[in-house]
C-alpha cells in the first residue's frame, strides 16, 4: 500500500534557525504514530510540515502523494486534518457559526454542523461565542470539525492536553474512525505514556532529530 507520508532527510529552518534536521519518516495507511519530545524539540514544526504548512529547506517528502514544496500540496490540503496547539476558531463567532463556516467552505450541508455538535456534546453551548468558550469546549468543537471534514491524514498536536476523559475519548474515537477509513494519524505530545497507549509506534524528537522509540 502507498505511503500516506514520506520524508527523506528533511530539514526545516524558521527565521534563520534550524528546527528540524535529517528527518526520515514514513506513515502507512491505518497507522497511528506518536511523536514524543520536550518543549522546543520541533514537534509542532514537524506536524506543520506534515500538514504541508511549512516549507522544507532540505531533503524531499510527499504527503498524500503530493510533493512538498510544489503546488501539488494545494490539491491534498483538504484531506489533512490538523488539531494544533491553539484551537483554530474565530473567537467572535459562536460555536455553531464557526462550524457552519467550516461547512460552507467544505461544501457540506449546514444541517450537519448541528448533528456534529450533538455528537461532541456541545448542543447546549451552540450559541456561546468561541472566544468565551473553555479550552475543553474548543477542543470538542475541533473534533466536530474533523468529524465533518473526514481527513485522511489526522495530525494532533498536544490535542489531549488538559482535557477530561470524555473529551479524550472523543479524540480516540476520531482517530479510530480515521484509521478505519484507510487514513492514518500522527499524535504529538510530551506525554510519552499517553502516546504509548494510543499509538502503534512512538518515536522521539530531540533537538530537531527524530529517533526510533520515545
Amino acid at each position: 500500500m502507498a505511503l500516506l507520508c514520506s520524508l527523506r532527510q528533511v530539514g526545516v529552518s524558521l527565521g534563520g534557525k534550524t528546527i528540524l534536521r535529517d528527518i526520515d519518516f514514513d506513515l502507512h495507511p491505518r497507522q497511528v504514530i506518536g511523536i514524543a519530545g520536550p518543549n522546543g524539540s520541533g514537534k509542532t514544526t514537524l506536524v506543520r510540515t506534515l500538514a504541508t504548512l511549512v516549507r522544507i529547506d532540505r531533503g524531499q517528502g510527499t504527503v498524500l502523494g503530493a510533493d512538498l514544496g510544489t503546488d501539488q500540496v494545494y490539491e491534498v490540503r483538504s484531506e489533512v486534518g490538523l488539531m494544533g496547539h491553539r484551537p483554530a476558531v474565530i473567537p467572535e463567532l459562536t460555536i455553531t457559526e464557526n462550524l457552519e463556516h467550516v461547512c460552507r467552505l467544505a461544501a457540506l450541508e449546514l444541517s450537519r454542523a448541528r448533528s456534529a455538535l450533538g455528537v461532541v456534546g456541545l448542543e447546549d453551548a451552540a450559541r456561546t461565542r468561541a472566544g468565551a468558550a473553555s479550552h475543553g469546549m474548543l477542543r470538542r468543537l475541533e473534533v466536530a470539525r474533523l468529524l465533518l471534514t473526514r481527513p485522511r491524514l489526522l495530525l494532533l498536536d498536544e490535542a489531549t492536553h488538559g482535557l477530561d476523559s470524555s473529551a479524550q475519548e472523543l479524540i480516540d474515537a476520531l482517530i479510530a474512525r480515521t484509521v478505519a477509513g484507510g487514513g492514518a494519524a500522527v499524535m504529538v505530545s510530551h506525554d510519552a505514556e499517553r502516546l504509548s497507549t494510543s499509538c502503534d509506534a512512538v518515536m522521539g524528537l530531540a533537538v530537531g532529530r527524530l529517533v526510533a522509540g520515545a
Binding site: 490538523l82 491553539r86 467552505l105
Partner: peptide, 9 residues
Amino acid sequence: ERRDLHALL
C-alpha cells in the same frame, strides 16, 4: 490558526 484552517479547508 485561522490561516491554517482556511488552507486546510
